[in-house]
Design a protein around this nucleic acid. Structure first.
Lengths: 208, 208
DNA sequence: ATATTGCGGAGCGCAGCGCTCCGTTACACT
DNA sequence: AGTGTAACGGAGCGCTGCGCTCCGCAATAT
């Protein structure tokens, strides 16, 4: 990892590329041009395409990382002693790095077996987090784990127009409002049936 | 309006065009191809471009209508006797027809004088609605009218992927959660400063 | 000095856009 | 019925902007 010379630069480039790709894709959407990632990373197209043979491959890598982070965030939430604080930590962390913005990518690209594995792991951990909050009576009973995933997705949705720091602050305010709405008991009964896992995963293509 | 023959068809086409444009642009984003609107309306490109000389003109018309509807919704909210119910009616109505999805268009197109006029009117009416709710003590005191506009915008944001009825239902559930979070008193203090009008309108280009 | 490796970015081929143009159709008028 | 006309649908033009390749160059290793 700490090799000298060009190998070190290569490793640095790889990281900058990943960071830039995350930033650009989550704020501009998946159809952002690859050249925008290269420019944001301060790297030439050649270097980008040596590491990732196609745009799809880059997106897959990005998704995988986002899933890892989401799973880790759920674990961190579980580690928290207080069930409510743990849940909030999980949600805030995921919205912070916009994991939800990458989830719907999956409809565009091929979902690898490893992605499915990680998705299932993250899903299961989040489920435990939500169940614990339910049992402690701190989370309104009519909201499901899937509702929360979709809430995070909604709050991660890229805004049109140029990237804007102010948007991030606004999102945090609104997320705080939404989190207050999640506390038990809900003032209003949630309308309609909760979303189904089949529908949720169906957007990603066929399960293995 | 109820003229016979071709003129009737023309009027019908105009309506279908507007409806289709609204549907497509709000669910797919502004860069949806014009041909998609024509197809969704069941109308040829020629007919579309006879009524609107450019895509921008169509978008302007659409924005104007959305603003009219938003202003009307705010009026309806004010007409409601209960301050909370009035506010909720306003928010739900606007999210229903996704007025917020059209607001950020304005950064893309030229904002006409009439659009500014209507925007100000809607803004002012919504302000009255929010103030009334504040004074009645039914709306948490740390949330501003602008926060609410941005909340509606967040919930109107187009989802990636193909249009999907299920998304609408999910949105309604999540909106219900958010509305519960708006009720006084907020469990958590909202972080940061409230968004400023200058920033909000600044995204539309220069004020007249 | 020479070989080798990774670098940046100009440019290729193409997909998909906004918009125009025109042959056809459906009605109004005599 | 015959004719003029207004509105129609949609193929296609010109062009932008994309994913991706290729190559001259700079930095290291030998």
């Amino acid at each position: 990892m700490d090799r000298r010379g060009r190998q070190a630069e290569a490793a640095r480039n790889d990281l900058r590329l990943l960071r830039a790709a995350h930033e650009v894709f989550t704020t501009q959407g998946f159809d952002a041009p690859v050249s925008a990632i290269a420019k944001a990373a301060g790297v030439g197209m050649g270097s980008l395409y040596r590491r990732y043979r196609t745009k799809e491959e880059l997106l897959q890598r990005l998704c995988l990382i986002a899933m890892e982070r989401a799973a880790a965030a759920a674990q961190d939430g579980l580690a928290e002693a207080d069930p409510w604080d743990g849940l909030v930590l999980y949600i805030r962390t995921c919205v912070e790095f916009r994991s939800g913005a990458l989830a719907p990518i999956a409809g565009t690209i091929e979902v690898t077996a490893e992605m499915w594995r990680l998705a299932r792991l993250a899903e299961e951990t989040a489920d435990r987090l939500v169940t614990r909050a339910h049992e402690a009576g701190v989370l309104r009973s009519d909201v499901t784990a899937l509702d929360i995933s979709l809430l995070m997705e909604q709050f991660s949705r890229p805004a049109p127009g140029p990237p804007d720091e102010e948007h991030r602050k606004v999102r945090e305010r609104l997320l705080t409002v939404a989190l207050d709405g999640l506390r038990a008991p809900g003032a209003t009964r949630l309308p309609g049936d909760p979303p189904s896992v089949e529908w949720y995963e169906g957007r990603w293509g066929k399960a293995p």
